[in-house]
């Protein structure tokens, strides 16, 4: 099975480099997992090609998440790193596609047209990081309250604590401790 994993990762790497050579910024192995860094504008086409290729059969989008690299060297290529976690159920193989987006106006094409499951994942990333997914049918907040301003998982959003209101302190305004 180990051999199979090596083959499929090589096949995917070759496929991506042949078909989207200009868009690939690097292929990285860390602790056995492959991460392909690509330019933001070719994400949709690449995923569509991977999905429709019958040999690779990358048919499962496991997760979408984002890392905020504020204040780190990695922020030079773009502060937000959006990571797509893709699987091939047939080959039992998992790999990652990473896209760096700039601090100002981070926008990327939505994958909802390929995977319906991307709908809630993208809404979550939009809500917590403020990444805009172009072409998403209903890009609204999903987790945080409507009145909350800002995107809580960004590194410049402070971790705060609000004193709970009980009958004994109901007249005191809630204190926000930073």
């Amino acid at each position: 099975m180990m051999e199979q994993a090596v083959n499929i990762s090589e096949n995917i790497e070759l496929f991506v480099k042949n078909e989207f050579g200009d868009a690939v910024l690097g292929v990285d192995y860390f602790r056995g997992d492959m991460t392909i860094s690509i330019k933001a504008e070719s994400l949709f086409d690449l995923c569509e090609a991977l999905m429709s290729d019958d040999d690779l059969a990358v048919n499962f989008l496991a997760d979408i998440t984002t890392v905020d690299w504020l204040g780190h060297d990695k922020a030079q290529s773009g502060r937000f790193e959006v990571v797509y976690n893709l699987c091939s159920i047939k080959h039992k193989y998992r790999f990652f596609i990473s896209v760096h987006l700039p601090e100002e106006n981070p926008t990327i094409r939505s994958l909802v047209d390929l995977w319906e499951g991307a709908n809630w994942m993208e809404r979550e990333v939009f809500d917590l990081f403020g990444i805009v997914f172009d072409g998403h049918p209903d890009l609204t907040k999903i987790l945080t309250p409507d009145e909350l301003e800002g995107h809580p998982l960004r590194k410049d959003f402070p971790l705060t604590y609000e004193v709970p209101q009980f009958s004994w302190n109901k007249d005191d305004p809630p204190e926000v401790i930073k």
Partner: peptide
């Protein structure tokens, strides 16, 4: 990120994604 705290911890929540 080279420090003692994680830069990012993401939990892929099965219930959340299944509820969709």
């Amino acid at each position: 990120d080279g420090t003692t705290q994680p830069r990012r911890v993401r939990v892929r929540p099965p219930s959340f994604i299944n509820l969709a």
